[in-house]
Design a binder for these strands. Structure first.
Length: 259
DNA sequence: ATGACCCGAGCGTCGGGA
């Protein structure tokens, strides 16, 4: 059994204790973090290492930033998304090989800031992600692409009234780009096991979104075919949103049968 | 359409120590 998780922590330094508690409780093999919001040197790698997890960090000042924590031996296969010019300027992708699979951890642009250029950057990231996924498939790799996709794939993934229809998270082009990933042959882990129902991974800090359960399902794990065959469970860890000083996202956890 | 809330950066102010 292999346990893999993804968590947008909204500042790893603010959330260090939450993450350490969660690691001790859940003991994932791999954990992808997004929005660490710090440079590599300020990442609390020693604290995670003391908990049994080695780290690969792709940070930047103030914004974005991704990292993977692993208790399995690993090798780093990418520190930026291939097929995307200028992506090195923003720390949004890191990828390792561990436990016999490729684990890509991504933080997709939100797309609501920066006007039309900001939205185009979101679509460009999704196009590059599709090209990369196709290359991994053609290379015969088994993989998990997990992270904060900043896309609500369907209306069922968005609490009624949570977002206007013009929001970048629900716009038709965003959803079409997500479907193109699925059409490559990838499996949305959560919906494969839970085709319907509320499985939100994010609740805004504002306007009582959490007590009203006004959430979004925007964190996803997409699986290559052989990994999908091994899928055993998938769920967001809702309890984490009820803690003191939480991130606005909760961990998404999947388990795989086999080695 | 708007606000609510949170985070980091940076700035100003304050208090403590040398």
């Amino acid at each position: 059994m292999m346990k893999i998780a993804s968590w947008n922590v909204n500042s790893v330094r603010q959330r260090q204790a939450h993450v350490l508690d969660w690691l001790e409780r859940e003991k994932p093999d791999l954990l992808g973090l997004q929005e660490i919001k710090c440079e590599d040197a300020s990442f609390p790698a020693e604290a995670f290492r003391a908990a049994g997890y080695d780290c690969v960090v792709v940070g930047q000042k103030s914004y974005n930033g991704v990292a993977i924590l692993s208790r399995l031996p690993f090798s780093v296969t990418a520190r930026a998304l291939p097929f995307l010019d200028g992506e090195a300027l923003q720390a949004r992708y890191v990828e390792i090989e561990a436990g016999g699979l490729t684990f890509g951890n991504l933080y997709l642009p939100n797309g609501n800031s920066g006007g039309s250029a900001g939205y185009e950057a979101k679509l460009a990231f999704m196009e590059a992600l599709a090209l990369h996924a196709r290359a991994l498939l053609e290379a015969g790799r088994d993989f998990v692409l997990a992270g904060d996709y900043n896309v609500c794939p369907t209306d069922e993934d968005c609490a009624p009234g949570a977002l206007p229809p013009t929001d970048a998270l629900v716009r038709p082009e965003s959803r079409a780009a997500f479907r193109r990933l699925i059409w490559l042959g990838l499996t949305d882990a959560l919906r494969a096991l839970h085709p319907h129902g509320r499985y939100y991974t994010f609740w805004d800090y504002q306007a009582g979104a959490w007590p009203r359960d006004c959430g979004l399902r925007i964190d996803h794990a997409l699986l290559s075919p052989r990994i999908a065959e091994r899928l055993d469970s998938a769920q967001p860890d809702r309890d984490e949103r009820g803690r003191a000083q939480p991130s606005d996202h909760v961990p998404l956890v999947i388990t795989l049968d086999g080695p």
